[in-house]
Amino acid sequence: MNETVDMSVDFAGLELANPVFTASGTCGYADELADFMDMNALGGFITKSITRKPRKGNPTPRIVETDSGMLNAIGWANIGLERFIEEKLGILGSMSAAVFVNVAGASIGDYVSVVERLAGEEAITGFELNVSCPNVGQGGISFGTDAGQVAKVTAAVKKVLDSRFRGNDKDGRKVLMVKLSPCVTDISVTARAAVEAGADALSLINTFTAMVIDIEEREPVLANRTGGLSGPAIKPIAVYLVNKVYNEVAKKNGIPILGMGGIKTASDAIEFVVAGASAVAIGTWNFVEPGCAVKIVEGIKKYCADHNIKEIKELVGALKAG
């Protein structure tokens, strides 16, 4: 019965086997989850943030749990572009899932140089611009909450990609996705800025800036003082914001949304799809139940079969009008 459901997704011109991704920063660089799941069961995979130079990241404590969620302040700890190319591209190239590299930087030049270096790599399907990380001093959320900056960094990266693939060479063209911060008054403003500057896809939401206080010490638990709130606690807000961006920006521009924020079950994922996401990403729950992405793919399939939905695409934005 399940076999009759077409789970494939058209995502900015990519044909994905299914709509389930693992989200940046929760699934390592490549095959760290392979002990727990078949990586080829994924529709898409997003690497942790890659910066031009290696970064140690923030001091500890870097995480703290909250009711139904967690705060993290890792600070873009990563091995840097060169080691990433040397050690991880080979493994990424062997994966059947679409591979997005999450790119981060303190300046537009940083983003550009990472993308320039990776744009010709076959192993990579596209880029996710991290303009929404709340845990770094420069770049990150300071870009993502300013629509003008979002437009600038998106346009600069788009220019790099366009200059490499003039004409109709669609095969080698990389998909440009911009990851939006929810820490703004109106997320449609930044979404529109990204789309007008050339984004092929939008991913949302990144985490919410948040704080947990140790009341004995009367200081924040995290060494970075603040961190990004993720997990089931943020899911209903994420669903709302995906629906808002879908209605106000994405639908009319034909731009797909990768929806994320607190997904732990297939029903959670389906909410995002109904709200307007063409695909979904699993984040925090990879920590609790590594391998849950596979169960979520199966669960979505079962829901479709049970509801006589032949193609998952039918469900995208299927929310009834109010």
Binding site: E32, M70, V288
Partner: peptide
């Protein structure tokens, strides 16, 4: 403090 224990979250440095 660890979130995952399996090298994903990078919090336990």
């Amino acid at each position: 403090r660890m979130a995952c224990g399996i090298g994903l979250c990078q919090s336990c440095v």
